[in-house]
Design a protein around this nucleic acid. Structure first.
Lengths: 352, 352
DNA sequence: CTCCACATTGCATGCGAATGCATTATTGCC
DNA sequence: GGCAATAATGCATTCGCATGCAATGTGGAG
């Protein structure tokens, strides 16, 4: 005796299960297909009786409106594309969760695209257009040409932490330069004189901005002789970067400005372990981002935290607005980061 | 004089930009719509001449096949749903990136759903079915009933690091119990006697398994008096958990088995900072997951690393297989974690 | 009681591409 | 050169739902 299973196991599993359509529901409820369609919309008119019969029939059949078909007719897929790079996700996982949840509150689904590097954008673009997404949030850099392609399709785009030179685009970002300038001035105010910078990968616009901000401020302070080494945002590359600084610089720096927290943590470890330095007594190290590990007691970084909550909120609402009202003109929203004075830098208390 | 803009700016931006359809291409190329459709498929027959004319016309119009319309007729959306909880992403961001990239290699897009907690599954389910996804990978727990709903729609599901009791389901997971048993036996072999356990949130099946595995092994070793406190997987809760242990236990434990790395790091910090303990000389602390921070020099956790690469690879290929061949019977793939003997535990070298 | 305004409902059509079938062009073979 | 086999192409239909329009029903005002 075979154990009896749930259902339709008999008929062979191969048979593609036929999902109930609005016609099926209509038939069972003894009404027209239009009626079913109307019951499952908001502003449509339907009598209570009608509604009841349809809903009960729909329930019986396990009917759910087919979002694909609906999208075809309404010209709205209710999907947006979110483009992230490996980096975005690995060092700021929260961004994605927040975006997705907030979009979901607006009845919008997220179609996710991840890029290994900030270049393989072209294929993603194709996909994105094929799927008729209603909008795009990109945490990867797009070229002007790529942007043009999307724009011509009438799809609004929000740039997350990046922008497009010489073009009016919507963007939400954290003010990287301002943050770096603050970090550098804090360090300088506290007597640091010998600076080194650890930048991120060359194709990261965020890293460029941060490094530029730091250099600007240093220049204003007449500190010109600054060593710059670069990493790839990873812990290991942070350690390597610090080693390189020690190796190439005459004498040690007393402050290292690192392009992100994870590399900063790498620097701290390398300084302590390999070079027997005390942080912050012998050397100050500052990061950027305000990721979780930055708060771990062993590091307690001085850093600038990106206000992820407000930024993602802004990105979502800006995009939704532009989906509903395509005429809106471009807008840039810039958020200042939260300044965190952690124990990884020797800072004087200048609040007095 | 107005600056001349790109195009169609004049006509008012409100006008919804009309995307080229296969008919437009057909007309321009002087062929039928079917021909256009065929050129954009794989196995379809088309002469070189035809192909050239269509492609050139398509190019001229910026035509891209409408994946929504295609999905409607082919009954394949080429989208899969990936359901994650906040936890999955925050403590193992890589999972998502890997899944997305691997699916993308198969021409499959990811529709992302995130749950605040492992319960709000119902609404997600609705969405998922409405969007006609071809398959589902879930890193959130589903009830048997929910699973039934998806199954009835003929959609294959892969459970990621979880399973469904009393039901045949596809799953990919890391052997949590085995990992914990190894951790405990390593600790015991090295002379640890007083154990405490920090578990994860009660609604996390992963945490349940880990705790169970540890307790089993402890029982086998006749260690019965084990204090268990629980956290929510966060750093802060790890610190709090350790404080609670110190508070409630008579004397200190010599080994703390923690349900994940992030909390383990919290425990280490709390032990060092607040209790002035040396890790691992005074106390051994072990975690689970093998996340990035576990390797930071300040912690160097003894832990079990989930083989995320192989697991996501397995999940993707299992799902794709089942999409193409709905008849396949359920399969479970269990991966052993990588055993990492880090400096956070005082372990004797038993390799000799 | 009559007439009009408005709420309900159904009919028919269209969204954009895929595909079975019929038709026509092409090729190969004897 | 003639004919069958095959490739290339077009026609017509279909996927599931939304929506303009017409038809019908309801209620209220006069």
């Amino acid at each position: 005796m075979n154990k009896p299973h749930k259902q339709q196991q008999e008929t062979g599993r191969q048979s593609p299960i036929k999902r109930a359509t609005s016609y099926d529901v209509a038939e069972l409820a003894g009404v027209s297909q239009s009626a079913v369609s109307r019951v499952f919309q908001d502003g449509a008119s339907a009598s209570k009786d009608m509604r009841d019969r349809v809903l009960s029939a729909a329930n019986k059949l396990g009917y759910r409106p087919n979002a694909i078909a609906r999208g075809l007719i309404t010209q709205r897929s209710n999907m947006v594309a979110v483009i992230i790079t490996r980096q975005t996700n690995l060092y700021y996982p929260e961004v994605l969760v927040q975006l997705t949840q907030r979009f979901s509150e607006h009845g919008v689904r997220v179609l996710l695209f991840t890029l290994e590097h900030e270049r393989d954008t072209d294929s993603v673009l194709d996909q994105l257009l094929q799927y008729q997404v209603d909008g795009v949030v990109t945490a990867a850099t797009l070229s002007a040409e790529q942007m043009g392609t999307i724009e011509n399709a009438g799809i609004p785009v929000i740039f997350y932490n990046r922008t497009l030179p010489e073009r009016l685009v919507n963007s939400v970002r954290c003010d990287q330069e301002e943050g770096e300038r603050w970090l550098v001035s804090e360090l300088a105010n506290s007597g640091h004189k010998r600076f080194a910078i650890v930048s991120g990968p060359a194709d990261s616009s965020v890293s460029m901005e941060r490094t530029r901000g730091a250099l600007q401020k240093l220049k204003e302070l007449n500190i010109d002789d600054v060593m710059i080494v670069s990493g790839d945002y990873s812990y290991a590359s942070g350690r390597a970067a610090f080693a390189e600084i020690v190796d190439r610089m005459e004498g040690l720096p007393d402050a290292v400005v690192v392009a992100n927290d994870v590399m900063a943590i790498g620097c701290v470890d390398e300084a302590r372990e390999t070079n027997n330095l005390r942080v912050p007594e012998d050397i100050s190290i500052v990061g950027f981002d305000g990721v979780g590990p930055a708060r771990y007691a062993a590091y307690d970084l001085t850093t600038v935290r990106q206000p992820v909550g407000r930024m993602s909120e802004a990105a979502v609402s800006m995009l939704i607005e532009r989906i509903e009202n395509p005429g809106l003109s471009p807008e840039k929203r810039v958020f200042s980061g939260d300044r965190i004075r952690g124990g990884s830098a020797r800072l004087v208390d200048d609040e007095a």
